[in-house]
């Protein structure tokens, strides 16, 4: 499985990472290399194997519907790059 530049661009868009032309070429090469290594998994016939989603056999972990007062807004905003009037602020959406 070889990854080309176009595919790298598509993945970078999905992952919301701006990457340089140089990085595109590097990622294409490195991802191809890694995926070729991963091809090794195809040596195994797994048709009859159930995927293992959760390693622990635990179910129904719940909390009760009891309110805990939210922390002060300013405590969260202390790390915010930009906020205004009690909102996080971001540049235009479109």
């Amino acid at each position: 499985m070889a990854i080309d530049i176009k595919e790298v661009e598509h993945i970078a868009l999905l992952a919301r990472i701006n990457i340089s032309e140089k990085e595109k070429a590097e990622f294409a090469e490195q991802m191809t290399q890694i995926l070729q290594y991963v091809e090794k998994l195809n040596e195994l016939n797994t048709n009859e194997v159930e995927p293992l989603y959760h390693i622990l056999p635990i179910y129904n972990v719940f909390r009760e519907d009891n309110v805990v007062e939210s922390p002060d807004r300013d405590e969260l905003f202390a790390n915010a790059p930009q906020h205004e009037d009690g909102y996080y602020k971001v540049p235009r959406i479109l």
Binding site: L35, V38, L41, N42, L44, T46, V49, E50, P51, L52, Y53, I55
Partner: peptide, 14 residues
């Protein structure tokens, strides 16, 4: 091809 396959292999390892 990748993620599901890997989870199946994870079962074999387990």
């Amino acid at each position: 091809a990748y993620y599901l396959k890997a989870l199946k292999v994870r079962r074999l390892i387990n």
